[in-house]
Amino acid sequence: MNLFRLAGDLSHLLAIIILLIKIWKTRSCAGLSGKSQILFALVYITRYLDLVTTYISLYNSFMKVIFISTSLATIYLMYSKFRATYDKNHDSFRIEFLIIPCVILSLVINSNFTVLEVLWTFSIYLESVAILPQLFLVSKTGEAESITSHYLFALGSYRALYILNWIYRYYAEGHYELIAIFAGCVQTILYCDFFYLYVTKVLKGKKLQLPA
């Protein structure tokens, strides 16, 4: 564990907490993509199956349980408890266009052709693009509430911090996982446009509004 990775994990955790608080306090999931949340739940479930086969550390197991349970809780809030506020019409991204290529890619490019390893690889690929339905929703409505922007910023920062962690681990431990590094870079690049808008608008107290 190094500082970059810890900061990345905490940023990831913060994103999820921000999201849950936003939904709970406003009693609404307006402006949020349920499809992205379904993809994230799929990511955590397929990646953390090793929870039952491999013990790494208490921290590791604890975080995995938190990520799986909070993502399921988010889906419950969006699709059941606060369903009436869910912006279904704008959340029209076709997630099969993301899931199917990720399935194929994970079957073709993986480091070991075993069930757990292919599912892990699938989750890495899927995570890199799982935010697209949310970004699509923001681009369709043309704006995002500031709390949603904070959520996106924390979520995007997590993988960017992991890139620093991978650079550190490569030099300090000689450890690297090419699949995770490649997908993590793709993931971070997808947030770049948003990061720019966040810094130039949201941090200056303005609402995140896309140029017309």
Partner: peptide, 10 residues
Amino acid sequence: ESTGEQHDEL
């Protein structure tokens, strides 16, 4: 080195 089966990151 890539560890293959064991992934220690989240």
